[in-house]
Nucleic acid binder design. Sequence first.
DNA 1: AACGACTCCAACCGCCACGTA
DNA 2: TTACGTGGCGGTTGGAGTCGT
Length: 486
Amino acid sequence: MSSMPNGGDSRKMSKGRRSSLSVEEGSESLLMKGPWTAAEDAILTEYVRKHGEGNWNAVQKHSGLARCGKSCRLRWANHLRPDLRKGAFTPEEEDRIIDLHSRIGNKWARMAAELPGRTDNEIKNFWNTRVKRMQRADLPIYPPHIYLRALSDNQESLDVGTVKNESGQHDDPSQTDNFDIPDLEFKNYKIHQGLSYAPAIFDIPESNMFEQPSVSSRSYNAMSPMHPRKRFREADVLYDSSFDGYISSAVPLFDQHDYYTSEKVSDHPRFSSPCDLILDTGQFHCYNFPGSHATRNGNTSSSTSITGAMKSELPSLQYLEDQQGVWGMPTSPLPSLESVDTLIQSPPTDPARSDPLSPRSSGLLDAIIWESKNLKGSNSNSLKQTAGNCISNEAIKSSTLNPRMTECDEQWELDSPLDHGITDRSVPQFPPAYCSRNKKMLSKIDPTRPDAVFEFGWFGNSTEYSEDQTVLRDALDALLRDDFRG
DNA sequence: AACGACTCCAACCGCCACGTA
DNA sequence: TTACGTGGCGGTTGGAGTCGT
C-alpha cells in the first residue's frame, strides 16, 4: 500500500490498542476491554466454529469469554474471520476504494462488500489516512479523473434521466420497492430538469432511482462476503458498477496509481497545486480546501479550517437531511466558505431569514438564481424571469425542495451589487437568506467531493447548463491533458 | 539520544434499524 | 403499539511504531 510503504504490516500484528486490559462492570460479570489476547481469540474462534456467527451476546454466557457481544462480533469480523485478506491494499483495491468513495461516500461496509476479504474498518482507516495525507499536501482528495467522471456521469444522468422520465416506466416493476417514485414527483422532476439545479438533481444516479437493484444487488450477491444478516441502510444503493470502464479512459495518459501516493504527487512538478489549475477559470472555484490559506494568499502551508469540511465527508450522492427533498434531491449549491463568512458577517436584517434549517426552506432557489446570475453575469431581467418561472411552478411548490424566495431576498437580489456587475467571480455570492438558513449545512458540505461542483449548482439555468458544462468539461480536459501529457 | 510530529490501526462508542415478545 | 434485545454501521480515540530534526 502506498500509504504504508514499509513497516506498517509488521507493526500491526503485534500491538494492541491499549497497553493493558481494562475491566468493566457488566450486567452479570466483569467484562474486559482493550486489546484481545491470543487466548481470547482462540475461545472466540472455537465458539464460532461450533455455533456459527451471530448471537454474539451468548458468547460470553456459553464460552466464558469476558467480552461483550459487540466486542466479539467486531473481533471476529475484523480479525478472526477466515476469509479475511491480510496485508496492504493493492493498487487496484486503492483505486476501487477511491472510486467507491466518490460514489457512495463514507459507506465503509458497502465498500467492504465490494472488496472481498477487506473490512470496513480497514477501508475506513485507509481513507482517513489518505484524507489526512492529501490535506496536508494541499492536494485534492480525488484524482482528476474522478472529477471528470463525476462531470461525465452528471451529463449522462441528465441524458438518460430525460429518456427515462419520458418513458415514465421503471425497467422492472419489482425494483420499485425501495424507491417508489410517485408519478407526480416524477413529473415535477422532469419539468424541472432544465432548471439550474438540474445537474444536482441528476446527480442522483438514475439507476438509483429507477433500476436500483438491478446491478448492485447482483453485484452483492456475487461478490459480497457480507454476512447474510448484514443489511444496508436505506438509500445505501450502489448505483454503478462501471468503475472498470471509465478509469482508464478518462485520463488515459495519467498514471492513476502514481497519483494516489502523495509522495509521487508531490514529485509531480506540474501537479503541485491543482487548485491553481482551475482557480483562474472562474468556473471551478478550487480543489482546495475551505479555509486553506492557499485560496487566499497563495500560501499552501495551512489548512486549519479543513476539519469541519472533511468531517462531513458526504457521499457524492447522499445529502444531508436538511439539504434534500423526498428524492434525496440535493438542494445545496455550495459557496466557498469565504463567501459564506462574508455574508454571515453581514447578517440579513429580516427576521424571516432566521428560519431554522429546513428542507422546505432551503433557500436553494435563491442561491440558484443568484449563482446563475453570478456565473453568467446576466442582467437582472433574465434573473427575475428565472425566479418567476421557478417560483410560480407548482411542481416546485409540491416538492419538499420547495425553495422559497422571501420578499426580502427578492429585494436583496434586486438591490444587489451583483446586478451592477461582478468583478470577482472567483468567490461565489449567495443571498443572505440562503446563507443564513444554510449556515450549518454549508459548513458540512465537503467541497472536495468530486461532484461538489454540481452540488454547487455551478451551472446556470436550463439553457446555460449544457453550454457551461461543455465549457467546463473542455477546460478540465484541456488542463489535464496539458498537465499530464506535457 | 531525545523529542515531537506523524502514521497506522485496533478497539470503543453512540446511534440506528430490525426482529420479536 | 410499544419496549426491548441484538446486531450493524460510521465516527472517534488513543497506544505504539516510525520518521525527521
